[in-house]
Design a protein around this nucleic acid. Structure first.
Lengths: 332, 332
DNA sequence: CTGTTAGCGCTTTCAG
DNA sequence: CTGAAAGCGCTAACAG
């Protein structure tokens, strides 16, 4: 069942190298023999062994992709783009999930190396491994975030925060909230823009979720506990959520307490996943397709040119997609 | 930067085969030399070339996975399980997405073969390729569906339909709806159970969505057009949706017309994705983890034993997870 | 316990 | 235009 070139060669009455030649582009092979080879290949359904090709050519046409989670639908759209654009360029995807675990991340990277991947695309678990990844001879690019040492294509999160802040201010809001895990650029950009406009983000209006709340039971529990803590009285009339799931969960929790969105509370999420689309939640859109396109440009460039120039940091621009949840009705 | 065993051997003053021995389990190697080798490996960060190993051992420790879409969050949970369980067994995942396209599916399979995958796990696009896949020397198992010719682990969809039907009848409903693309086992099981209980599923209560509605804009459009067609009057008080997204979209569309769930309309979805969990939608739960576990059992078994026994069809049992959307309030 | 040797299946000079 | 031959990095007899 599993043929080799040698056998094809015998069947077609040519040498193995001729078989190889016709498979790799036909250059300089007599039409007759070429046809004969092609016929045999077709008849027996021969498929060349890529392990051997990889060994010989020392490149595999595989790209290792390591993401941090699959919980957020955002990552699915990312995987989808990655897979389809990779294929467009003639590459396959070896997919790993680090689950936010730096050790697992490093193991994945080692695995990629051992498989002779031609490049890696990584959503890092943090700063843990980026520097040593940058020292490897296999080119990598960070996606979704910006990190030193490596090419990276992310989003201008601070600008996202600013856009949201300005939208809220423009709508006439006076008290603001934030829903997220640890403070990040989104948060800082949001707060700063608020300050610049003479507004303030009160500390008690930071609905802080545990970093580990990457599953809905925990997330909802954290939200409930916040709400109970403030006696079910939400002191803000608008809030920026660090992702769409958080936005949605907060909206649900509020609704259970008779607080309606957008009537009593305006919410803007982040990622603009289909969750936001289905539920009519305003959200900061990340241009995933463009992000992936840019990532491949960088990666393919590094793969082709040995030249190791300085890493570049690309920050794409976020845009606000307005839907019902920030559609001021009677709030302030 | 990229070392080979030969170089390690030289640095550690042993032969290449000794290096190979210590890497592959240390059996029968003098402790001294072993330690020396290990030290060198550690110092230079040597990682063996799996392409060479694959070529030599003629197995790759890769499993090819080909799914049909990423739109439904159900598939994400599937990918996640597949990846983590594969890793647990020492395998990596090569991920492809056929996008419901049989031609792409076959290309993926060929690609898998060329990469010497040890096995394949496939969500088929239909019956197009299963038979010829079954003839390949690489073992495969179908997941999520049941198909002839190949080992397959799916769900008892007809039973799911029956469970839903009985739940609705038990709640006292008298008129029933169905939301989905083409009629399938879910639908038939549902209708049959209804009939057996003296009830009827009227043809005009079949909210038929285009097969291609695998993105929310199209799906919503189809729902809207159905609703407009029936003059915004929903003739049923309960409906079974073929997946959670459809359920949610229908609930939203109904809500826009002043029809509340569960007050005026009960809905049960399918897949029990986090969408259902977050939104409080009752749904038929698919035991994804168990499904994947079973799939690996079958696959690993085929991979280890050359014996080609008859393909087995496994149908796991669905369960209904009741949430708010089927929580009868005043409907019938 | 360890080194030597012969390939795994393919690509790629090098001659002819 | 085409065959012979070397070798990619590794494993696994086979001798010692």
């Amino acid at each position: 069942m599993k043929m080799t070139m040698k056998e094809i060669a015998k069947l077609a009455n040519v040498s193995q190298s001729t078989v190889s030649r016709v498979i790799n582009g036909n250059t300089g092979v007599n039409e007759e023999s070429a046809k004969r080879v092609l016929d045999v290949i077709d008849k027996v359904g021969f498929i060349p062994n890529k392990a051997a090709q990889t060994l010989k050519r020392s490149h595999s046409h595989i790209i290792g992709v390591c993401i941090t989670e699959t919980y957020n639908p955002y990552f699915i759209e990312l995987i989808d783009q990655l897979e389809s654009q990779a294929r467009k360029h003639g590459y396959n995807i070896l997919l790993h999930n680090s689950n936010h675990n730096p050790i697992q991340e490093w193991e994945s990277v080692q695995n990629f190396i051992s498989r002779q991947v031609d490049g890696m695309i990584i959503v890092p678990t943090g700063d843990y491994n980026v520097e040593r990844i940058s020292k490897l001879s296999t080119p990598s690019v960070v996606i979704t975030q910006n990190r030193k040492f490596l090419d990276s294509v992310g989003l201008d999160h601070a600008l996202a925060g600013k856009i949201v802040a300005e939208k809220f201010i423009h709508s006439g809001h006076k008290s603001f909230g934030f829903i997220g895990t640890e403070p990040d650029d989104k948060y800082f950009g949001y707060r700063m823009a608020l300050n610049e406009n003479g507004m303030k983000l009160k500390e008690e209006n930071y609905v802080q979720l545990e970093e580990s709340s990457t599953n809905n039971i925990l997330m909802r529990r954290d939200i409930e506990s916040y709400l109970n803590q403030v006696g079910n009285i939400i002191d803000f009339t608008c809030a920026f959520a660090a992702n769409d799931i958080m936005a949605l969960e907060f909206i649900n929790a509020a609704k259970d307490r008779g607080i309606s969105v957008p009537e009593d509370l305006n919410i803007i999420g982040f990622d603009d996943t289909y969750l936001a689309k289905i539920m009519g939640i305003s959200s900061i859109h990340q241009p995933i397709e463009e992000m992936v396109t840019t990532t491949f440009e960088l990666l393919l460039n590094r793969m082709e040119n040995e030249v190791s120039s300085k890493p570049v940091q690309i920050k794409l621009k976020p845009t606000l997609i307005e839907r019902n949840s920030s559609n001021l009705v009677r709030v302030p």
